Simulated assay, not measured.
Amino acid sequence: MKPIDRRGALRAGAAAALAGLATACGTTPRPAAPAPRRPAAAPVAAPAPRRLPGQPAEITHGPRDRPRVALTFHGQGDPALARTLLGQAEKAGARVTVLAVGSWLDRHPDLARRVLDGGHDLGNHTQRHIDVNAMTETEALAEIEACATRLRRLTGSIGTWFRPSRTQYAAPAVLRAARRAGYPHVLSYDVDSLDFTSPGATAVVRNVTGSVRAGSVVSLHFGYPDTAAALPLLLADLGRRGLRAVTTTELLT
């Protein structure tokens, strides 16, 4: 017969007694309750167009007495390049304006929210990006409203700005159609980067810096590798000149 381990038995008995006492007193530990879930942050609301007193129906530039410029991008092309350009701008502390093509948003709807969440302006660049000046007023209105419908569905707004497609300046019929669609102003530009000709990053920078000045609205495009290569260089050059890249809304207000 094995000798009785009296000390071990006493320890076991004491532990059992304590456990029974804890149960009787209702102090048995319970699993921790899961932490309450925080509600998801509400998405950034897209601002609506508004009339700017003192501004013409077609805006080509902002005030010349403030050290700001607006970099505006025609929104279509490779979505990866679009995300790269947005990220480059944000890394440099810049904000831009994206005029999105409706058919592009149909294929890449998440990019509407990506633009807004980055603090940028989002606007309308027609539904199919064809020559809007060659259309009748009724046809132009349908083209503008089709893109506006996409923007409203994705963001709750028709977009802050409208820019006509395939042209720098809008024909009178397009100006009227834009107003009927809810856009008090048409956004043009005074500096063309010509990046859509794929001239190389150095040429894109030179095309902009050769004529940019305070208040300028610069035309650029998503979808072109030269633009992505040029943007950090361009932003650095603007910084050396004391010019800050802001949204068109900030430029004009």
Rank of each mutant, 00 (worst) to 15 (best):
M1P: 12
K2G: 05
D5K: 08
R7C: 06
G8V: 05
A12N: 11
A14W: 05
A19S: 13
C25T: 14
T27G: 12
R30A: 15
P31A: 15
A33Q: 14
A40K: 12
A40N: 03
A41I: 07
A41K: 11
A48K: 03
R51Y: 04
L52I: 07
P53I: 02
Q55I: 00
P56F: 01
E58M: 03
E58K: 03
T60Y: 05
G62Q: 01
P63C: 05
R66T: 09
T72P: 07
F73N: 09
G75F: 02
G77V: 06
D78K: 03
P79R: 03
P79T: 04
L81M: 12
L81H: 08
A82G: 14
R83M: 12
T84V: 14
T84R: 15
L86N: 11
Q88E: 14
A89P: 11
K91V: 12
A92Q: 11
G93W: 04
G93C: 09
G93E: 08
R95P: 09
V96I: 15
V96Y: 06
V98H: 02
G102R: 02
S103A: 15
W104G: 08
L105N: 05
D106S: 14
R107F: 06
D110C: 05
L111I: 14
R113P: 13
R114M: 13
V115E: 08
G118L: 07
G119P: 00
H120E: 03
L122A: 01
G123R: 01
R128H: 15
H129Q: 10
H129R: 05
V132N: 03
N133G: 03
A134T: 09
M135Y: 12
E137Y: 04
E139K: 10
L141K: 06
E143A: 02
E143M: 04
I144W: 02
A146I: 06
C147V: 07
A148E: 03
L151A: 10
R153S: 15
R153Q: 15
L154D: 11
T155Q: 12
S157K: 10
S157Q: 09
F162N: 00
Y169W: 14
Y169A: 12
A171F: 04
P172S: 07
V174W: 04
R176H: 13
A178I: 05
A178L: 05
G182K: 05
Y189L: 07
D190Q: 02
D192P: 02
D192N: 10
S198D: 13
S198Y: 00
P199G: 01
P199Y: 01
P199W: 04
P199F: 04
G200P: 04
A201Q: 04
T202D: 12
A203G: 01
V204G: 00
V204Y: 00
V204A: 00
V205M: 02
V205F: 01
V205G: 01
R206W: 00
N207C: 02
G210M: 04
V212S: 04
R213A: 15
R213I: 00
A214E: 13
G215Q: 04
S219T: 13
H221K: 09
G223N: 12
Y224F: 15
Y224W: 13
Y224I: 11
D226A: 12
T227I: 12
L231S: 11
L234Q: 09
L234T: 08
L234K: 09
L235K: 10
D237V: 07
L238E: 07
G239E: 11
R240K: 13
R240A: 13
V246I: 05
V246K: 00
T247L: 02
E250K: 06
E250S: 07
E250H: 07
